[in-house]
Amino acid sequence: MITIEAVSKRFAGPKGEPVDALTPVDLTIPAGQFLSIVGPSGCGKSTLLRIIAGLETPSDGKLTIAATGVARPIGFVFQEPVLLPWLSTLANIRFPLDTGGVPRAEADATAHRLIKMVGLQGFEDALPHQLSGGMRQRAAIARALSYDPPILLMDEPFGALDLLTRDRMNDELLQIWRATKKTIVFVTHSVEEAAYLSDRVVVMSARPGRVRAIHDVDLPHPRGEATKLDPRFHQFMATFRRELK
């Protein structure tokens, strides 16, 4: 469970004046929930995600991550797949395990299982620059899953992909979520993506960055093509879109 209490972030502006990147946010994310944060650029959605990840310190407020007994509770998928260019796909996926002291054989077994899960069989030995954008991002997701963190944070992970690849990746992500029961916090600027994937959607707006509304998306699971024909799916999208204006 992730508890965010009155967390805010203030940067120094170009003339040294304080700029509110994020006005105080309160949010509780129960374990196993798929939560999306949707908003225009500059609304602080990435800042909020990076605060949860520990990559930024909040200017104020309190963040609690209840994940007892886990050395590395967080998996992070960046907007660009941050693969190490000298490592093969397999070695990239194994990297967290290698650096975490997991025995070689066990790490290999895990990496091979994940390669299969994200559909990269046959590309185990390929270097990142030999993979397509979608394949690279799948490898990055597999790497984030390799050490089985209870929380997966994703910062517009499919933003750079074409629509077809993106749709397929969304379905794969839902499958992974169903299989692993992880808490997922997913940042996007696409209302469709947010409505399709999530249990709950946080709509944010910019200047100053703030939470505009929070919605429970109670569309039935498992989701698929039928979801996209559901009138309520379109209602959710219309609501988010209206709130983003």
């Binding site: 990840a53 520990g54 990559l55 050395a71 590395r72 967080i74 998996g75 992070f76 960046f78 660009e80 941050v82 190490l84 990297f95 967290p96 650096t99 975490g100 050490y147």
Partner: peptide
């Protein structure tokens, strides 16, 4: 790249690693 260093932080690598 900044994000490679951030990856190291997420994975809690030691300074030496």
């Amino acid at each position: 790249p900044q994000n490679a260093l951030e990856l190291a932080r997420i994975l809690k690598l030691t300074t030496w690693q």
